[in-house]
């Protein structure tokens, strides 16, 4: 453990409103919840912030509900709650698949959907699901609430439109039809970081999202368009390979990611016929 605790500060709001007003007054506050990413950074001594806002006890952000026709999942919903939710199982089973594979029981019990979004890793396992589901990120500040589609939420590697005085409060997933499909390719069978992760929906215009193949999670509009127009899968796979921009890193190679992403598209297509 290389993190230094002395000198860190933590604010503990008891409600969402209190949290938002604290953030308005002090934009240097960094929200924390399940800490499954943040405390890893603390351990490595790479935590840059020194002032934190503990959201863990704000239960109003743990609600899973139908809101109009959309599925609304509160930002503090843990993977465990997602896995156990009948509503999610019915509406967004691919999110359950993603949540199951995100880590062991200990991570399921603590990690939150909002945290996965806020952390913004291109390997975040729920992000392709949300992108393929056309999810909207609901953000709130002390003054206003705004909604941004997940596909427009990220502006670059670990960068997003979220402002320092805003919190992610929920994700809304509109109703849609079509077979859902999810596949994670990690460095081992459990407790792994994704080398390629794909979520897709087989609908008249297929929706395909990939993680770990670009600086952010991406949708593949050209590939989707080709499939919609009836292009053979092999051609769609070629388009996909051009549409992504994977890199070599310590976990995998650019070539592997490209090939596997293409293979996953083929598998998705074959399995959802």
């Amino acid at each position: 453990m290389k993190g230094v605790i002395a000198g860190l500060e933590m604010r503990e709001p008891s409600s969402l409103d209190e949290a938002l007003s604290a953030m308005r007054n002090d934009p240097s506050l960094v929200p924390l919840a399940g800490c499954t990413d943040l405390y890893v950074a603390l351990n490595f001594g790479t935590l840059e912030s020194t002032r934190f806002l503990n959201l863990w006890s704000i239960d109003e952000l743990r609600v899973i509900e139908k809101s109009n026709d959309a599925l609304s999942i509160g930002a503090l919903t843990t993977y465990k709650s997602i896995i156990q939710s009948k509503l999610v199982r019915k509406r967004l089973p691919m999110l359950i698949s993603a949540a199951r594979e995100i880590g062991g029981a200990q991570i399921h019990n603590r990690g939150t959907l909002g945290g996965n979004i806020a952390n913004g890793s291109p390997a975040g396992d729920t992000l392709p699901v949300l992108a393929a589901a056309d999810a909207t990120v609901v953000m709130r500040s002390a003054d206003a609430e705004r909604r941004v589609p997940l596909t427009q939420f990220y502006t670059g590697y670990r960068k997003s439109v979220l402002r320092a005085d805003e919190l992610i409060v929920a994700v809304e997933i509109p109703s849609f039809s079509g077979k859902q499909w999810f596949r994670k390719v990690g460095t081992r069978a459990a407790q792994a970081i994704s080398k390629v992760v794909m979520a897709a929906v087989r609908s008249p215009r297929p929706r395909i999202a990939l993680g770990s193949v670009a600086p952010t999670v991406i949708r593949l509009p050209m590939t989707e368009g080709a499939l919609e127009e009836g292009a053979p899968i092999q051609e769609a796979q070629r388009i996909l390979m051009d549409e992504i921009s994977p890199i070599d890193d310590m976990r995998s190679t650019e070539e592997y990611r490209r090939r596997v992403a293409s293979n996953l598209l083929g598998r998705f297509w074959a399995e959802t016929e």
Partner: peptide
């Protein structure tokens, strides 16, 4: 040099 990135077999491996 992290257990996240140097992976040893889990129960499922």
């Amino acid at each position: 040099a992290q257990l996240t990135n140097y992976t040893i077999p889990t129960t499922l491996d």
